[in-house]
């Protein structure tokens, strides 16, 4: 499984879902994928399939009807995954806050890792968010690999297992 860590960081695939936004952030995501801002230089590719994605880009304040689909898509993305909320209305509800069909931001339904401000978010901000998401993705990958690390941390003195050294190593690992 350690084998996959560099590849996750080098080519994170994104899934984009519009949960009721005004299209402003969506076309900025398209522009960020285009040649001027060139998000694809980070290995990012826009997939339509949640089962192949690592990063979940959500726009919009979550309307009443899109909330089920949002949670469904989130649960279909395999671990480790990172959720980015693009735009002010995705983070807090923004201008739509308090409207009768709006759920005021996505963190009511799914955990969010990176919040992007702006109405509409500029491509530069979206790129920043994805670069930040790469670090989070790497940290989450490491978290998943943890059991394997512990298993490999066998210490011997002479021909005997050194329980004290192993316990110290585990402690050190927990700290980091």
């Amino acid at each position: 499984m350690k084998f996959f860590i560099p590849f996750r960081k080098k080519s994170p695939w994104i899934l984009h879902y519009n949960a009721g936004s005004c299209n402003g952030c969506d076309i900025e995501i398209l522009a960020a994928l285009g040649p001027k801002f060139d998000l694809e230089r980070f290995g990012v590719i826009n997939t339509g399939n949640p089962k192949q994605s690592d990063i979940f880009l959500v726009t919009g304040p979550v309307t009443y009807r899109s909330r089920e689909r949002l949670v469904e898509l989130y649960s279909q993305i395999p671990e480790p995954k990172v959720v980015i909320a693009v735009g002010s209305c995705t983070t807090t509800g923004g201008v739509f806050r308090g409207m009768y069909n709006v759920e005021d931001g996505i963190d009511r339904y799914i955990p969010v890792d990176v919040y992007v401000p702006g109405c509409a978010s500029t491509p530069q901000l979206i790129i920043d968010a994805i670069v930040k998401a790469l670090d989070i993705l790497e940290a989450k990958s490491k978290e998943i690999e943890k059991p394997f690390k512990l298993f490999g941390a066998i210490e011997t003195i002479g021909n005997k297992l050194s329980r004290l050294n192993m316990a110290k190593k585990v402690e050190l690992h927990e700290k980091n």
Partner: peptide, 30 residues
Amino acid sequence: GFVHRGVELACTRSFEFKQVGYVVARVCGL
């Protein structure tokens, strides 16, 4: 109907007429 937010009602309930111009701009980004 997936992206229905209720902008029309909010324009008459929660925003004054000077603010509504900026709210209806958020109906569509394009």
